[in-house]
Design a protein around this nucleic acid. Sequence first.
RNA 1: GGAGAGGUGACCGAGUGGUUUAUGGUAACGGUCUUGAAAACCGUCGUGGUGUUAAAGCUACCGAGAGUUCGAAUCUCUCCCUCUCCGCCA
Length: 431
Amino acid sequence: MLDIRYIRDNPDKVQQAARNKGYDVSITELLEIDDDRRELQQQVESLRERRNANATSMKGGRPDQATIDEGKQIKIELSEREGYLGNADAAYVKLLKQVPNMPWDDVPVGVSEDENVEIKVVGDKPEFDFEPKNHYEIAGAKGWLDKERAAKVAGSRFAYILGDMVMLEQAIIQFVMNSLTNEDVIKTIASNAGLDVSTRPFVPVLPPLMIKTEPYDQMDRLQPSDDRYKIEGEELWLQGSAEHVLGSMHAGETFANDQLPLRYLGLATSFRKEAGTYGKDMEGIIRMHQFDKLEMESFTTGSDSFNEHLFFVAVQEYLLQQLQLPYHVLQKCTADIGKPNARGIDLEVWLPGQGKYRETHTADYMTDYQARRLNTRVRVSDKLELVHTNDATAFALGRAMVAIIENYQTAEGDVRIPEVLMPYLGGREIL
RNA sequence: GGAGAGGUGACCGAGUGGUUUAUGGUAACGGUCUUGAAAACCGUCGUGGUGUUAAAGCUACCGAGAGUUCGAAUCUCUCCCUCUCCGCCA
């Protein structure tokens, strides 16, 4: 949620930003309702003042009949005004929630993801002296992937992952966990990127995989709710990303300044309905209803948050470079960054089996947009301010394995193991 | 799932319908005293909204929401959470 005071002071800017992001919300209407609401609030508060004065006028003794009658009269008026205020408040909050976060200054204006801007290309695409295969051809032949039986048991867009592919996932998890909990690695990443950020390592987290309606809404991630799985008969949902359960973890809390930055590395299975994508990416494991993901989330002060965002991107690049996977970096345009985002970066890895880049990583810079409704704050030199949140993919494990399988394939249909992962696979060099 | 007990400020803890603008204590901060420190004493010590140049003021907040009442931390209802016992369970 945006700060209403900012909206009052910058109505045109906010309106334009919402338009650029593709959100149809009337700032004029919002500010009119805001005015109405404030006027009603004044009326209600002065009635309450009268009520309170009336109720305490007897200083503890029994009030006389005239005082009681007066109180009854105030009560009638007050309850009428409170009714109006309640309606105005509901309309106000509903509209205010619809206002997207302001895009950062350098976010390109665009109407669709086609206008995302490639800002960097890294790594050499592998060259093969044979026709490279898709990950699902290789994994299928190896017996690592069984979607038919998964369909029988759970339906489409589910898979049994088997054998060495399971070992590979575990190896990636261990590699990333070991790297990002090591302060020396954090130092290296920050200094390579030339970033003046804290070198505090990440805290690994196994979060709950379900989240209640209220914190989900406060994270501004409940929408689109038709991409979410709801537990029948409960105000409970399966999370669609560890971001949802990590970012809401400190709702209602106030940090001391020296607790920040607080960096979490969550490992969680994420669930998405993928409604409206039927027929799209049905082959392989690119777009499953369920996938394991290592996700970074951090809480910082406002002054540190932008560098933290750049740091998260640097972490993503570091991990891909360690695995020697070729990728490019996209700066997402206004239409694609997302409603709570101020800025968004996508990393896409080159998939030789498909002959194109595919999204494997996202870095979301939220400023204080999520924290405002979560009410997560920090005390900075005696003043309270909202924290800023950043989240970013460390590895979506399914897609990471797709990238490894396709980039490291051999003519024989085997998969070489990236060097940094060998120690986690018993020193083997090939799968 | 069943039965019971609870949820009050940074923390502990009183408060079962009306000077409660939430008692008291701890911690923190400032001061007095001291060569310095401790102790003692004095003072300060919540958040949101509204309002304003700034303030004062007003208002809300005792787990969340709704209700009863002239008046609610206190009574009623619903929900959330914690603890104890039973049941079930990896």
